[in-house]
């Protein structure tokens, strides 16, 4: 191909593949949509079935599991949950534990994160290394060990035993540490010059600036402690201290059931999902960013 070739044929040759390519792109876009919609239905449909089934009678749930609109609406499952089971008590316990764990984590994580990010002290590197090591220990292998200590401390089967071990969370400390490092140090200097002590500087100057990170901790702690199961299995035994996760798990494995009782079980599962679902839809954007940045758990 020589440089003297007229530009005209070149242009036409270029345009044709472009328009064809375009058509192909449009077709591909449609295919993408169809595929994604099909996948989205697969992901969401089970939850629609869950809610629908909780309003069905037991025979209908077995006969017509796919129907999203119940033929005979009934709230029998919900009445059964609230009148004939400890469901309200479970909900109350989950709420209490979640509240204290979330508050405690916000406070302790931000204190520790601030110390790691901003306060030079002897042994800081060691503490940091230990936190990293601790994060690597898989939770499930700690079931028996945790029970041993809780038992030894005499806090087995109490709120203290349910709440205290959940208060420390190394991942949260890292989130706070990273955020505090991103705040310019000049802000604190100003407060120091004005004569504020370390805690004062932290509490009234730095912490208010860390609201986004604090919200991330709140959301992650809320989700984590509301959905926690195995810690409550090993730290409590009395029915008065049963949480939603433990109660519903026992319900599912047939503790109080005759027959399949699918509407009742699905109603319980749906109700326990409501709080996390609400938090998820309110803070959607932040949750998705937080999870992407600092892996859920």
């Amino acid at each position: 191909m020589s440089t003297s070739t007229a530009p005209a044929p070149e242009q036409t040759r270029r345009r044709r593949p472009q328009s064809e390519g375009r058509r192909r792109a449009v077709r591909r876009a449609w295919l993408t949509y169809l595929l994604l919609i099909a996948l989205a239905i697969i992901y969401i449909f089970p939850f629609l079935v869950q809610v629908a089934t909780s309003f069905k009678t037991e025979p209908e749930a077995a006969q017509n599991p796919l129907g999203i609109i119940p033929q005979n609406w009934t709230v029998a499952a919900y009445i059964g949950l609230f009148a004939n089971s400890d469901f309200p008590q479970w909900g109350m316990n989950s709420f209490i534990v979640t509240l204290f764990v979330t508050l405690g984590r916000v406070f302790f994580n931000s204190l520790a994160g601030y110390a790691l990010a901003r306060i030079p002290f002897r042994g800081r590197g060691l503490v940091f290394a230990l936190l990293v090591a601790v994060m690597a220990v898989p939770g499930v292998v700690l079931l028996i060990p945790k029970f041993l200590v809780i038992n030894q401390l005499g806090i087995y089967d109490s709120y203290a035993g349910m709440i205290l071990p959940l208060l420390a969370d190394a991942a949260g400390v890292f989130i706070m540490k990273n955020f505090f490092e991103s705040i310019p140090a000049s802000v604190e200097e100003q407060a120091r010059i004005d004569g504020a002590g370390t805690f004062r500087t932290f509490w009234s100057v730095v912490l208010p600036m860390a609201r986004p990170a604090v919200m991330t901790i709140v959301i992650l702690s809320f989700q984590g402690s509301w959905n926690e199961l195995n810690h409550f299995i090993i730290s409590t035994q009395s029915p008065d201290l049963t949480t939603l996760t433990k109660g519903v798990a026992q319900l599912a494995s047939g503790a109080l059931s005759q027959g399949t009782q699918y509407p009742l079980k699905l109603a319980a599962a749906a109700l326990m999902t409501v709080p996390v679902a609400i938090v998820f839809f309110i803070f959607q954007k932040r949750i998705m960013n937080a999870s992407a940045g600092a892996v859920k758990e």
Binding site: A112, V134, T198
Partner: peptide, 25 residues
């Protein structure tokens, strides 16, 4: 003073992790 503050700040997390993670193991 800073060293003390640092340790005070980090103490709760270290104590809880030590008590419910290191000691149990």
């Amino acid at each position: 003073r800073q060293g003390l503050a640092g340790w005070l700040f980090i103490a709760p997390v270290v104590v809880i992790l030590g008590l419910f993670l290191v000691v149990p193991v």
